[in-house]
Design a protein around this nucleic acid. Structure first.
Lengths: 331, 331
DNA sequence: CTGAAAGCGCTAACAT
DNA sequence: ATGTTAGCGCTTTCAG
């Protein structure tokens, strides 16, 4: 069907080796040859076959970005978007392509773990099954984990400083003079949730503010859940004057509840989010939140992966990205 | 390095053909053989090499989803998210993987158009250079265009009924009694923008409402732009009581402007959006908008592509998805 | 700078 | 049910 390197070679009179070089290393071929070859190729609609190339070179220039099914609406997930985006750009820069898939794409008929397409490297986002990682490493495929932390020998993990971020947020609320502060905590992977909760609790302790269990909620990190729980909390006696929400989506839901109850943010209830995702700017007033530099995480993940692919040793297994408090209108 | 089919064959005593079959068509191999083969494979950490397989089968089970650079923050783009999502799920169902890339990934050193990785089919989202499509078809790679319409022979295009959606929105506003209605039109691909504008204008005509050019804006479809233009329009004398925004992002920006001006949505200014994207539910009050079933479009795009790959003839080149008015709180 | 030839790892007839 | 064999299209020594 499609023209092959042989057809081109035949048409232009050069050998297929030379044709190959005209694409793989143009500078190694005389200008005259190059011209003739490209002309012949054009005439035949020839385009090099990446599969064949990958086969002999034993590398595909493909990277997989794998997201756990549970978090699957990942592309929808305003947190992962910029990460993916940055990773893609970094990949493109190096002539790599990014495969975005879920973890269900990596199983074999016999039940074994395996990545269907050959990948030069893999980025796991968020939760992962440890066995999957082990399996990949057995097959000598470099792996980096982003937005999660697992204590495996030599496994590079890139995550945000969830603890620090929670401290920044809580401290800010305390300094504002709030002395009744609630927590709307979303269910993420245990490490993440726990770190954020811990930051909150320890900071309250530092400021001698008691933790009131009635105003601590453990919910799914969705808009409706945020709204629902806040509606309920608003009815509580002696309710807090401020809430720390462990992501922006929850915070947006909480804001809705406050508004609908006829109260005002931040005058009646101050709210602070986490992630600095896109929605922090669509709500009005705009959300005060803890910024995670997701783009940086994505970029770093790719760069680290490239190093690994190039055989460079791991310098630091656990890279933690600092967070930053972004003060806007809700607290 | 990695074990090959030959190593497995040697270890288990079967031929490599049988080993191959144990993976490609397990039912064609005796149970005993399968067990031995899988055991040997496990011992050697063997996993079939997808590249080699793709090479001989001449198909990769990969689909590319290509978004024009201009719209690149596509993953960020709340409109494309559900589309991508649905496409991925549909792909997974058929054992295909989805490559998400930009249009810049498809050029050759010599300037020719070409897709670096071999793909069994390609979905273009939004704007595309016609020459790119021509080139793909020359290389006999099936193509479908989604969220855009191009009149090319036999090219399948899947788009929403932009005209109809604009009519629904405008008509609703008219029926509500608004007789001064503004338009905040975002710059999308010409076909899309024009269809939406036309729907707006014709509907006003139908209701004998004059079109006031002072309250028609042509802007970038971004939050800030929506806010900025609305702030300006609010200062206009004899200003509209309602605005039709050609996407939700613009509408959200416009809502901010209204709120900041101390006015209320929808009491003072009614607003209606387009897309029914995620943000239509994060704003408060929630946005009345025209729903485009982006998930359906993504799913349909994949299904059509699979048909094309299977060699089935194109039944209908231009598939138009109907829109639906979703009435919520802003109009 | 160019050519000849040996594979890369797997599948798909065709036999047995 | 299993084995034999001939490639898939390209890159890469090694020579010239």
């Amino acid at each position: 069907m499609a023209a092959t390197i042989i057809d081109v070679a035949r048409l232009c009179g050069y050998s297929k080796a030379t044709v190959s070089r005209a694409y793989a290393s143009p500078e190694a071929v005389s200008e005259k040859a190059r011209e003739k070859i490209y002309a012949a190729a054009k005439q035949l609609n020839y385009a090099p076959n990446a599969i064949a190339r990958a086969m002999v070179r034993q590398q595909t220039e493909n990277i997989a970005f794998i997201i756990h099914e549970k978090q699957y609406p990942a592309i929808l997930n305003p947190f992962y978007s910029p990460m993916l985006e940055a990773a893609m750009q970094e990949g493109t820069r190096r002539n790599y392509s990014l495969f975005v898939t879920t973890s269900q794409d990596i199983h074999l008929p016999n039940g074994d773990i395996y990545i269907k397409k050959h990948m030069d490297g893999v980025i796991f986002a968020g939760e992962v099954d440890i066995r999957v990682i082990e399996e990949f490493r057995k097959q000598s495929i470099p792996v980096v984990l982003v937005n999660n932390y697992l204590d495996m020998d030599g496994l590079v993990c890139i995550s945000a400083d969830h603890y620090g971020g929670a401290v920044q947020a809580t401290e800010y609320l305390c300094k504002l003079g709030h002395c009744k502060i609630g927590l709307l905590s979303g269910r993420f992977s245990p490490q993440v949730s726990e770190a954020r909760i811990e930051g909150f609790v320890k900071t309250l302790a530092k400021y001698d503010i008691p933790v009131d269990d009635r105003f601590i909620a453990d919910i799914e990190p969705a808009l409706e859940d945020g709204e629902e729980i806040m509606t309920r909390m608003l009815r509580g006696v002696d309710r807090p004057t401020a809430f720390f929400c462990t992501n922006d989506t929850i915070a947006a839901g909480a804001m809705k509840a406050v508004t609908r109850a006829g109260l005002r943010v931040p005058e009646d209830i101050a709210i602070i989010g986490f992630d600095d995702s896109y929605i922090s700017r669509v709500v009005e007033p705009e959300l005060t939140t803890v910024r995670i530099d997701a783009a940086k995480m994505g970029c770093l993940a790719m760069q680290t992966l490239f190093d690994l692919i190039a055989g460079m040793p791991v310098e630091k297994a656990h890279i933690q990205i600092p967070t930053e408090l972004i003060v806007r209108g809700t607290a």
